[in-house]
Design a protein around this nucleic acid. Structure first.
Lengths: 157, 157
DNA sequence: ACTAATTAGTTGACAATGCAACTAATTGGG
DNA sequence: CCCAATTAGTTGCATTGTCAACTAATTAGT
């Protein structure tokens, strides 16, 4: 079973497990963490932003955000410029969580790159970005990968 | 949103999408493909083998394998040496599918590594294996990653 | 300005996954 | 040999995710 493609789900699951461990008693699940981080980074953004950045179905985003709003982790205001849209914000409660999550992310990066030189880390990131871009162009998917600035307005992603 | 940790779920989703595209009319879903490939590689293995190799919950494996058996993609025989266990086999139907899946995997690897030198590909794989191992040791999970032979009997994974 | 196409979001059906409780078989320590 | 611990697998429940159909608002073509 020496198929290196399996390394991606493998690492994915391991990082999820790490988040899960850290967030056990925080009131938020490891699957919701990316939602929160995204809102933190793009405060006031639409739900559609999460769809594009996180590559999660819009139906799922709608349900999850609704739940997170009910539990007090996200505030949703109607967009004055577009009556269809919502604008997403952190709450006081979730702002603390975000700082904690950022620390967790940092720790996770340190763990993952343990024993690697800075050159190796840089090259790994570079290769992964190229891999993501390659896949995107081959697949003809809706949105370019996060790190492909090409089609995105203002290069804000 | 320049967090390179996001590259892992990103690439993961893109590869899944690629498989999804190829398997649209094959009778099997892109989530079931890994199950099939694993049984192909370890014919006669137990369900627990899939749990360890694919890092999927045993309950989920039980349900999915049951469904795949009903649909004629996997045959399940009782293990004569252990009355609790099953032994998993491909069927004639799924054997064809496996050859197709192997081709898809190969194409996907070619796509992903497009524009990379063989040295770069080798280094990427090496770095990913090290990352997976790092995470595993930090997290204290049940099973070592696929590419960590340490704890596995006979080095068969 | 009017219709057509697109876009943001919601909802419901359903598949996939994870977790916990459970059964039954096996292994190990005294 | 016997009881405790472990192991393989099943089942039910909750969460997360995808897909498709839908509403309502916006944009674009003519």
């Amino acid at each position: 079973m020496d198929n290196w493609l399996r390394l991606f789900p493998e690492i994915n699951k391991l990082t999820f497990a790490a988040f899960h461990k850290e967030l056990k008693d925080s009131g938020i699940s490891s699957t919701q963490a990316p939602y929160l981080m995204c809102v933190a980074h793009f405060e006031g953004c639409s739900q559609d932003k999460l769809v594009k950045v996180l590559r999660i179905d819009k139906g799922c985003v709608a349900k999850t955000i609704k739940q997170m709003e009910e539990r007090g982790y996200i505030e949703r205001k109607p967009d004055p410029k577009d009556k269809r849209g919502n604008m997403l914000y952190l709450t006081d409660q979730s702002r603390q969580l975000v700082t904690k999550l950022k620390e967790t992310e940092k720790k996770l990066k340190d763990t993952l790159t343990k024993g690697m030189t800075t050159e190796e880390v840089d090259q790994m990131i570079d290769l992964l970005k190229r891999a993501a871009a390659n896949l995107y162009y081959a697949i003809d998917w809706d949105y370019p990968p996060m790190f492909c600035h090409s089609k995105f307005e203002k290069g804000e992603i």
